[in-house]
Amino acid sequence: MISRVQKTVLVLVVVLFMAFSNTGSASAGALLADLENALMCKCDDKCGKVLENCTCSTSDKTRKKFSKMLESGLTVEQIVKQQVEEHGETILSAPTKKGFNLTAWIIPFGAILVGGLGLRRLLNVWTGKKMPDNEVDGAADVDTDKPDDAAGSTKYSHRLQDELNQLET
């Protein structure tokens, strides 16, 4: 069962992630850069590079064309839309965040989330074999803490020695 603290942390992480994910990346002076980042180069060599990274003569012409389009008052979104109508979705440097393409964005995070939940479950099982959670705080840390009772001392001394031996390897 998830505790209140864990729930709060989870919500905070999700909110922070959503906030960063939705932060706009375009500033007024960087419209051309946004376009270069959003679109692929359509050069004859089929270089497969995003326009921003391409240095071929076609990319230079494309940049000039986009500069003129921006000067004429078209927005980045309008130019991108026009390019998609002309060349198809392949001109976009990343999948759109709608329809089937949304799976491209969701699945990696979904996989990590599922993996994380699975890992948590696994850890619960693995740690549950040893001792309940409420005893954790009182337990000694093998790196530095000294246990109080003699039996514990012997046990942890052996453990420390064992660990030091392993560190030597």
Binding site: S21, N37, M40, E89, T90, A94, N101
Partner: peptide, 15 residues
């Protein structure tokens, strides 16, 4: 979908 798309740097950077 029968549509070839491109997955470039913006995708990898965001993910």
């Amino acid at each position: 979908r029968g549509i070839k798309i491109t997955v470039g740097p913006p995708f990898y950077n965001q993910v």
